[in-house]
Each structure stands twice: as C-alpha cells, then as structure tokens.
C-alpha cells in the first residue's frame, strides 16, 4: 500500500509539532490533497511509524538518517511564510 502518513515531530510532542502539523494540514488541504494523514508526535514516535511514513517533518534537527525524506518545519514556529510554502510544496511533491 502507498504510504500516506506525514509525521511531524518535536521534542515534547506538545507544542511545536502540533503547530507545524496544523500548518501543514491546512497547506495540503488548500492544495486539495486530502488522502493523507498528518500526525503530530514526538521524536520517539518515529520508530513506531517508520513503515508507514511518506515524509518526516521536524521542528528540531534530526541527526539520524532515514529511508524517507526529512524536512525541517521551524518556519511554522518562526512565522517565516516563504519557508512554510516551500515545505508544503516539497511535501506535496513527494505525496503526488
């Protein structure tokens, strides 16, 4: 089955991942991409989801290398709108 999960992570999984996930979900909706699940979580959740992940998005630096693409989404926390658009475009390209 095609992988349709976008996991958005941060350290505590309570604040920045949730904010970024919200932004990405809205961005995908605007581009009419709806058959995707965007989930916020913490860094420890990656391992558990690694077989379903299409893209990993993180507000922190991810040191480990993975088989799926990884993007940094701190733009959603700093309010950098160009940066936000860029992340959404990159995520869309992968999901297409």
């Amino acid at each position: 089955m095609e992988k349709r999960l976008v996991l958005v992570v941060c350290g505590a999984g309570t604040l920045t991942s949730v904010m970024a996930a919200q932004g990405i979900e809205e961005g995908l909706k605007k581009r009419k991409i709806t058959n995707v699940k965007v989930k916020a979580g913490r860094i420890d959740d990656i391992e558990r989801h690694k077989d379903d992940l299409a893209v990993l998005v993180s507000t922190m630096k991810i040191k480990q290398e993975y088989s799926f693409p990884v993007f940094n989404a701190v733009a959603f926390i700093t309010g950098d709108e160009d940066g936000q658009e860029q992340i959404i475009s990159e995520v869309v390209n992968i999901l297409k």
Partner: peptide, 24 residues
C-alpha cells in the same frame, strides 16, 4: 533536561525568543 536535549531558541530577526516547555 529538555532544553539541553531539545533546545527552544528561535531566531526571528531583531528580537529573538525562546519557548521552553515540557510534557504535561
């Protein structure tokens, strides 16, 4: 400990902020 492992400084421009937080 969290700030050590997962720092929260945000570079915004003229003024920068940090948003330390932790689990519920």
């Amino acid at each position: 400990k969290r700030e050590e492992n997962f720092p929260t400084g945000l570079k915004l421009g003229k003024y920068n902020i940090a948003i330390p937080h932790t689990e519920p």
